[in-house]
Design a protein around this nucleic acid. Structure first.
Lengths: 203, 203
DNA sequence: TCACTAATGCGACAACTGATGCATTAAGGT
DNA sequence: ACCTTAATGCATCAGTTGTCGCATTAGTGA
């Protein structure tokens, strides 16, 4: 059989331009009106594109958000490398706090919006997984420096260090506490060096 | 002046009955269809009440959720009291994990839905504040038992202990880890007994 | 340069959402 | 028991949302 079941895409030129303009519009709308002000109508209007085009390519608001989130994962971000575990975790927490309190609050709006649709939820989950996987290098370096026991569970340590910052800013929605990033990082590093995140012994 | 600026409410009988039926309908809809299946239409239909009634009394979906959240705060819940700090925190974390993974997932749906409207967000924030305030008794008891230094910052300790559970289940949305509640509780208790949550010294 | 057609623009449509005026019911006081 | 009127039911209407067929534009390979 002649393999041509699909009608041959055209990803270049206008299509790519439309995508860029629409995704930019999504970010702008998110920053201005938040997740609930994000309507297909407004996005299409700001992007200078017809409503039907947005519906056809992205389906619904969740599709737009998923595309934005996937695009956000395609960067070269690397976790901080300060030379010490506490330093790395502290710097990481400050990055998180800065991102969550930035104006306009795009990151916070994206997280909040990821609850609105299945697609956005999956994209957000992929992004979390990617970010935490990259951060595991922080723990690896600390182990090599002898700051941590060799079998430390990297993921749990990272979560213990970062969760309080997310918790306060995203769920509790209390005003940002300038001491919290350092405090949470130090607490986690202290517990980790005491072996609190030791993984199971191998056979 | 004769004090009667407002037209004298009628909170009894039918009004109270309507409220109960509507709020029950909200919970049922949340459990079945989640936050995005929560439409005024469906709630009114399930409650056996006219659409216009729901619109007039609650305004929108956010108003419904806010009322549900406020009603949820009017209970006699008390934090666990097991006789030890680690025991209390562990029990608390298990309660949290159970609530977040219960079927139908009402608590998780409420948290997610609180991102959809200003009113629901404020109600959710009041609920968080109330719950964490009640939990401070855990820390108070631990201090009296001599498990913790007297000037321990109760709120930060509680957040350090509980945040990982919320983070994994609500934000990261990874499957529930049966060890996490214990692990996070032990870690926080360890750091606390080492003085990691010491408040500033008084003058 | 030209033909082919994917991608978009355009307008019209049904379905849904939230608001409003009026009739009806029932709560609360006498 | 009776009156007043708050609360609700009911029907209707404007605005919005998502879909679809057709016309137009422009990417792609020849």
């Amino acid at each position: 059989m002649t393999t041509r079941p699909e009608p041959a895409r055209r990803p270049g030129g206008r299509t790519a331009r439309t995508r860029t303009r629409v995704l930019d519009a999504v970010l702008a709308e998110l920053g201005e009106h938040g997740y609930d002000g994000l309507t297909m109508e407004a996005v299409a209007g700001r992007a200078g594109v017809h409503r039907a085009t947005v519906y056809r390519r992205w389906g619904d608001v969740g599709g737009l958000l998923a595309d934005v989130l996937d695009a956000a994962g395609d960067d070269a971000w690397q976790p901080p490398d300060t030379g010490s575990l506490t330093g790395d975790l502290t710097a990481l927490n400050h990055e998180i706090q800065d991102a969550l309190t930035a104006q306009p609050p795009i990151v916070a709006a994206l997280i909040a919006a990821s609850f609105r649709s299945e697609k956005a939820e999956h994209a957000q989950r992929r992004l979390w997984e990617d970010r935490y996987a990259r951060c595991e290098s922080i723990v690896g370096r600390a182990v090599q420096r002898g700051e941590l026991p060799p079998r430390t569970d990297a993921r749990r340590l990272l979560i213990a260090a970062t969760a309080p910052v997310y918790h306060q800013l995203v769920l509790l929605r209390t005003p940002p506490d300038p001491d919290l990033p350092d405090q949470a990082a130090r607490t986690a590093a202290l517990a980790a060096s005491a072996g609190a995140f030791g993984a199971a012994e191998p056979a």
